[in-house]
């Protein structure tokens, strides 16, 4: 699971009002090289919830993202390559996503988060 995906997901358990962001429990993080596409990064920058993204990257062991940003950072190649790395190359292979409100763990196995709810959660 990439941080791009993490940034899009929330806990949708019935009754939960604050299901985002899911806390990352990282057991195994791998890096996978992905070809960089600046246009894609610029598009995604607008969609990303930055704080959740920075916190997520730290949980995955990457600490080189600035705490706060505005769109001017997109001019910097150095920023783009860090953003690219954190967004698409860090990969949570094993671990869990934890609902911030209920503590329910959504397991991540073989890189795939299981967001399916139990019967009593829908």
């Amino acid at each position: 699971m990439r941080l791009l995906t993490h940034n899009m997901l929330s806990s949708n358990i019935k009754g939960v009002t604050n299901g985002f962001p899911l806390r990352i429990e990282a057991e195994k993080v791998v890096e996978k090289t992905v070809e960089m596409n600046p246009d894609f990064l610029k598009k995604m920058f607008d969609k990303i919830q930055w704080k959740a993204f920075v916190d997520g990257s730290r949980a995955m062991g990457f600490t080189e993202l600035p705490e706060e940003v505005d769109s001017s950072v997109l001019e910097s190649d150095e920023f783009l390559s860090r953003f690219h790395h954190a967004l698409l190359e860090l990969h949570l292979e094993e671990g869990a996503l934890v609902c911030p409100e209920t503590g329910r763990r959504f397991p991540v196995n073989k890189g795939i988060p299981n967001m399916l709810l139990h019967e009593d959660e829908v």
Binding site: M8, L9, S10, K47, M115, L117
Partner: peptide, 24 residues
């Protein structure tokens, strides 16, 4: 081919997208 940037197990009837996320 490049791997999918994301694969997940989810129910399209109850999709787990965060509130406010749109046009991605």
């Amino acid at each position: 081919l490049p791997m999918p940037v994301g694969l997940l197990r989810a129910d399209n009837n109850l999709p787990p997208w965060r509130p406010g996320l749109k046009e991605v």
